[in-house]
Design a protein around this nucleic acid. Structure first.
Length: 570
RNA sequence: CGGAAUGUAGCUCAGCCUGGUAGAGUACUACGUUCGGGACGUAGGGGCCAAGGGUUCGAAUCCCUUCAUUCCGACCA
């Protein structure tokens, strides 16, 4: 490719709308252009990277016996009625009507479509197991797209669906897929991606893992134990709350005039927040008001609570709180006229300070075991920095990550709802068990940029770089430079090497700055001084490595360089 | 969906408070000088000042409405 022909304008200045480093470089480097909120066109450099990422993923999917298919983007409503998701998924699902007023949707994921496809194909136990996958556009009407390609509304996803006759077979395949994912991220140049426990969300199913790239710019919170190397999404992370056992002291009312918050209470009594019980009231979608009790220093984890309640919820109004018999600001969990959920952090504490259900009074020495003997004790706490790892007892840290992929054991969530069965050896109808496995291609591209860049631009790993070699020619108006550069370009192309040739006769600074934004790993510089000695200079992007190579050896040098460099990404 | 901010040239922004015919840098075009880390000179093209309504002799500027974008929350496969 000649730079003079490439439609991909580079920008010197940071675009006003971009904050994330990958967003900035992808816009500045002429990779992507926004068309609408969360909807982007990819220019050639980004498209070439995407093609390479897809090739790597395809190779790894084939290695675990995947079969590539392609399903439609537009799906009929009836399919999603079968699974119940036409109604259960809200605004994120984009619904459209055709000319005959038929309800359609833009697929945000393809469980329904793949079950509809597979249920008429796999009728016998002899057909199992199998895995179908595709690279296909998804549309998700995100409440808030942001960060360039990190969170968009339309994107290409590799989605894979496996079907199994037995749970053991799924478990086994899930592990194979987990390994394949690590291979994929390693080959894409980001081996640092970690696998973490996660919540399965609206997908259903019990076991799920996310693949997170831990970077400060990430939007997910990941709880990390540095000691035992365990990782969990904030949504499911757990910790242990231990307190020194104390003798249970009698409840004692104390006057706390106008002291309502934990902070105020801490200041007023001199007690740390860990010695208090905090109450939070929520109202569920069906109007029920419930109370949650956590330790004073602990935040309620609303994802965990949602799973406990099996319902969405909002903070309760003061009127709703009063109806439960509680006094806002001085609430006490004892004798409330509503369901009370007690977190382990409180249940494991001794002699805590809590409200007295009377204005301007609190109560000392609250003990769940004695004062709430029938309490529903569950895990509804958000883990925070410094909490204790449940596996090894070391302090936990909270990091940020970008979720580049996920895998789920779906079980029979879809096959059952959509009435998919096969006949086993004994002639019985059996519901197959599913797993599903996703990777967002554009987000992976952006994540590689987040992880691999310097102050001048992206540093693409050779395995995914838009081109393998960049030629920069200085003083192209000189005959010997022009002829050498043209010949070099031609020779490299003949060898099947991907090369971007800057044939625009620009000042060196401009060429180098633009080349940095393109991030091609191997740079060849054709310039007068070296050429007088019969040499071409090479420089590796993102490292200090550089040197002079005789003109007649440059092709074999580049071939060798590509070969050794690619070994890093096997 | 809540809170905040911003919409002026392809891009980054000034002008707005205090109303009087649209500015800079960059990018683009031409010529010349430069040119191993985003060079310089001269000349040129490029704007329905987000849209709609109002106030006014006169609106980019003041007021109202809508839309869009960004940030912080909520949500999220």
């Amino acid at each position: 490719m000649r730079s003079s022909r490439l439609v991909s304008r580079k920008h010197k200045e940071k675009p006003a709308e971009a904050q994330l480093i990958s967003h900035i470089y992808l816009l500045r480097g002429g990779y992507i252009r926004p068309l609408a909120n969360g909807i982007y066109s990819l220019l050639t450099p980004a498209k070439r990277i995407q093609t390479k990422i897809i090739s790597i993923i395809r190779e790894e999917m084939e290695k675990i016996d995947g079969q590539e298919i392609q399903m439609p983007v537009v799906l009929p409503r009836e399919l999603w009625d079968e699974s119940g998701r036409w109604n259960s998924v809200q605004a994120e699902l984009l619904r459209v009507r055709d000319r005959s007023n038929h309800d359609l949707l833009l697929a945000m994921t393809h469980e329904e479509a793949v079950v509809a496809l597979a249920r008429t194909e796999a009728m016998s136990y002899k057909d199992y197991p199998f895995m179908l996958y595709q690279f296909q556009t998804k549309f998700r009407d995100e409440a808030r797209s942001r960060g360039g390609l990190v969170r968009v509304r339309e994107f290409v996803m590799k989605d894979a669906y496996s079907f199994h006759a037995t749970q053991a077979d799924l478990d086994n395949y899930y592990e194979r897929c987990a390994k394949a994912y690590h291979t994929i991220f390693r080959r894409c140049g980001i081996p640092e991606v970690v696998s973490i426990q996660s919540d399965s969300g609206m997908m259903g199913g019990k076991v799920a893992h996310e693949y997170q790239l831990l970077v400060d710019s990430g939007e997910d919170k990941v709880v990390v134990c540095e000691k035992c190397h365990s990782y969990a999404n904030n949504e499911v992370a757990t910790c242990v709350f231990q307190a020194q056992p104390e003798e249970l002291l009698p409840l004692e009312k104390i006057e706390t005039p106008n002291v309502k918050t934990i902070d105020d209470l801490s200041r007023f009594t001199g007690l740390p927040a860990e010695k208090m019980a905090k109450m939070v009231f929520y109202t569920t979608t069906n109007g029920e008001t419930i109370a949650v009790v956590v330790r004073g220093d602990v935040e309620v984890n609303e994802c965990k609570l949602q799973k406990v309640l099996q319902s969405e919820f909002t903070f309760a109004t003061d009127e709703a709180v009063i109806k439960t018999g509680a006094v806002p600001g001085f609430a006490c969990p004892i004798n409330l006229k509503c369901r009370v959920f007690t977190d382990y952090s409180v249940a494991n504490g001794y002699n805590l300070l809590c409200g007295a259900n009377q204005a301007d009074y609190h109560m000392k020495n609250f003990n769940v075991s004695r004062d709430l003997p029938h309490a529903t004790v569950t895990d509804i706490a958000s883990v925070k920095e410094g909490d204790i790892c449940p596996k090894c007892g070391a302090p936990l840290t909270v990091k940020r990550g970008i979720e580049v992929g996920n895998i789920f054991k779906l079980g029979t969530r879809y096959t059952k709802a959509m009435d998919m069965t096969f006949t086993d050896e004994k002639g019985n109808d059996v519901t197959p068990i599913m797993g599903c496995y996703g990777i967002g291609i554009g987000r992976l591209l952006a994540s590689i940029c987040e992880a691999k860049h310097d102050e001048f631009g992206p540093v693409w790993p050779l395995s995914v770089a838009p081109w393998q070699v960049q030629i920069c020619a200085m003083k192209l108006d000189r005959k010997e430079i022009f002829e050498t550069a043209e010949q070099l370009y031609k020779d490299l192309k003949e060898q099947g090497i991907e090369v971007l040739y800057d044939d625009r006769n620009l000042a060196a600074g401009v060429q180098f700055a633009e080349a940095d934004l393109t991030g091609i790993p191997i740079r060849l510089i054709v310039a007068p001084r070296a050429l007088e000695q019969g040499m071409i200079e090479y420089k590796m992007r993102g490292t200090d490595e550089s040197g002079l190579i005789p003109v007649n050896e440059i092709i074999s040098f580049v071939r060798e360089k590509i070969k050794t460099e690619m070994e890093k990404y096997q």
